[in-house]
Amino acid sequence: MPLLQATGVTKQFGGLRALSNVDLTVEEGEIVGVIGPNGAGKTTFFNCLTGMETRTSGEILFRGAPLPTRPDRVTVAGVARTFQNIRLFHNMTVLENVLVGTHPRSRAGVLSAIGRGPRYKREERKAESTSRELLSFVKLDGLRGELAKSLSYGDQRRLEIARALATDPGLLLLDEPTAGMNASETAGAIALVKAIRARGIGIVLIEHDMRFVFGLCDRVAVLVHGEKMVEGSPAQVQSDERVISAYLGRPAE
């Protein structure tokens, strides 16, 4: 059973068709790249997967079951994401950001929080140790007490990934994880993505950095004008005439 199976995902904004009939399948532990020119509908595709936008039609199965359409339930089901323009909780500390991510996995309710019962304490201890472990996984353990907004750009990206991982996802959607990074930071990001895969998590990533995509992904899909033009191994995609012309800016038709 594939981890994610999206079929015929379509999104219509008024008269504009941002996505039309996009299919995408992700297997367990696979890294899939989604590339395409600006405005091709890549982020819209992520938004439709995570329920931030309501898709016009199409079916999305996650681990064989329909994926909910409300963002919080998508996360609870096991799909997490990061954003192209980083969206951290800026006025919270690094540790708190990750702790917020553990929210769907905590079973302590409001009442036990007010009563500070033993179950609440156990859940809080568990959340905190998970968070600390994730922060050291993304190499931010020294910055736990800092406010998120005071972090460097690269650190903010890694924190966003740690926060997403705290929701304990089976599938992680990364929206341009290396945007704005320098070469050494990008190298770090490659290692990080591989390490995430090693934890058994499937990954879909949107990227413009082709070396990053082709060096890392098991499979690559190309979106142009909201349609999936090509899907295949990095080698297949790299040699496809249509992809080359699309990237050189010639009309694809």
Partner: peptide, 13 residues
């Protein structure tokens, strides 16, 4: 701070 992102953390806002 950010209700949309909070939702994506699995929070039922």
């Amino acid at each position: 701070q950010d209700p949309d992102t909070a939702r994506l953390m699995g929070i039922n806002i």
